[in-house]
Every structure is written in C-alpha cells, then in structure tokens.
Design a protein around this nucleic acid. Structure first.
Length: 224
DNA sequence: TCATTAAGCGTTG
DNA sequence: CAACGCTTAATGA
C-alpha cells in the first residue's frame, strides 16, 4: 500500500479525483520493483493490473516471425498504460521489459473498474490518453515511407515527452543510444547519427547514457 | 552501386 | 562496467 503523498507524486491523474475516489485509488495500488533487464511479463501472461511507472523505463516488445525482438514503444517515469488489456480482461499481447531499475505501481482490476464506473475525472483522463495514442497511431500510417531516419527518431523520442501522457515531463531522460535505436527500429549507428544531427539543430542535447530535450514542439514536428 | 547493419573492439565516463 | 565511437565485412534494395 502507498501513501497519498506518494500517489500524488507518481500519478498526475490522481490530482483531479474527489477525496473518496483518491482514497479508493490509493488502497488499490501496490508497488513492485524490477531490476534492469527483468521481464515484467511475457506475451500471453495474465497481468490483471493497470500499470504506472513510478520510476524507471519500460519497453513494450514483441517477437517478429523470424524471432527478432521488435520494440514497439517505451514508457518512462509517470507513464500509465495497460487499460486496454484490463478493460477487455485479456492476456498481454506483448512482452514488458525493464530497461533500467524500475518501480511499477500496480492498480488491481477491481479498483480500475470502480474508477471507470464512478469517476468523471478518471474517465476524462482515460479519454485524453486514448485519444492521444490514437492520433499517434494514425500518424504512423504514413511514417515509414515518408520520413528519413532522423525524422523517425525525432518522432519516437518526442513521444517520450508527450505532455498528455506525461504531465510536465522532465526534459532529461536516461536511455542508451542502443535502446533509442531499438525504440525507433534502427541501428545504433543510425540512432547516433540522427541524434547528432538533431543536437546540431538545437533540438536536444546528447549526454552520456541519456538525452535532454530542448525543444519538444519542434522535435515532434521535425521533418515535415 | 550505395546505404545500412551487425559484430567486434578500443576508448571513455 | 556500461555506454560510446569507430572499423569492417555482410546484406540487400
């Protein structure tokens, strides 16, 4: 069980709840720690919790037909996800891997469904989040053919700083260039070259083991 | 042909 | 010790 202060820190959506809703959410959440490289779940597992990243970085990954690991998305500190599988009561469709030491907040399914039934603020948050993801998904349809490597990387990185998915995201993110490459579906070399180009343009700063975003808006639109 | 990648390895923080 | 940068051989559009 977590404290109210802690819930406010890790879950920006909790700020908008009524006192009763907030208390219900607080009692329904537990935290779990995962070491770097650990699997949170494998494809096909039942993970009946709605999930928040209290601290750390996760990737959602899958296996291609030829057996190669394909990274589909990254979720960093204070991102919340998994409402699809919890609502539909399905098995997970993808692997979840901690990219560095990570603490997860797990909200049990009953609590999630109660908030879904009872809280206007919670539903407003969910609709906003789903809408944001849908917009991103539609943008992906043209993404492959229309954009070069630096533009694709800019899109993917900007996604980790989305203000709807992460309220007031920190401009700094610890992530290796290799993982950025995996996240963008490109090699480490290409990721490095693309990052250098974007740094020259003043959109971000490269650090050892991480990056700092200087201009998230231009980054999200880069190349169009 | 040209661009890109995986793999290996020396360097760096 | 993990992240980074560079070289090289393989790959493939």
């Amino acid at each position: 069980m977590i404290t109210g202060d802690h819930l406010r820190r890790i879950a920006f959506w909790s700020h908008d709840l009524t006192d009763a809703e907030f208390e219900r959410a607080r009692r329904g959440i537990v935290e779990k720690s995962y070491a770097k490289g650990a699997y949170v779940c494998h494809r096909g597992d039942r993970l009946d919790s709605w999930t928040g990243v209290a601290e750390g970085l996760l990737k959602i990954a899958s296996m291609s037909r030829s057996g190669k690991a394909v990274t589909l998305a990254g979720i960093r500190t204070h991102g919340w996800f998994g409402e699809g599988t919890v609502l539909k009561h399905e098995a997970r469709q993808y692997d979840l891997v901690a990219l560095r030491d990570t603490r997860l907040a797990l909200m049990d399914r009953a609590t999630f469904l109660w908030l879904f039934e009872n809280s206007v603020a919670f539903n407003r948050f969910l609709v906003g989040q789903l809408n944001e993801r849908l917009g991103q998904f539609i943008a992906f349809v043209e993404y492959d053919r229309m954009l070069d490597a630096p533009a694709r990387l800019a899109r993917n990185v900007a996604w980790l700083f989305n203000p709807v998915l992460y309220r007031n995201p920190s401009p700094h993110l610890e992530i290796s260039q290799e993982e950025i490459g995996l996240l963008c579906g490109m090699s480490r070399q290409m990721a490095n070259k693309s990052l250098q180009l974007l740094e020259q343009k003043g959109l971000l700063r490269i650090e050892h083991g991480g990056i700092t975003i200087l201009d998230p808006e231009r980054l999200a639109r880069y190349g169009t």
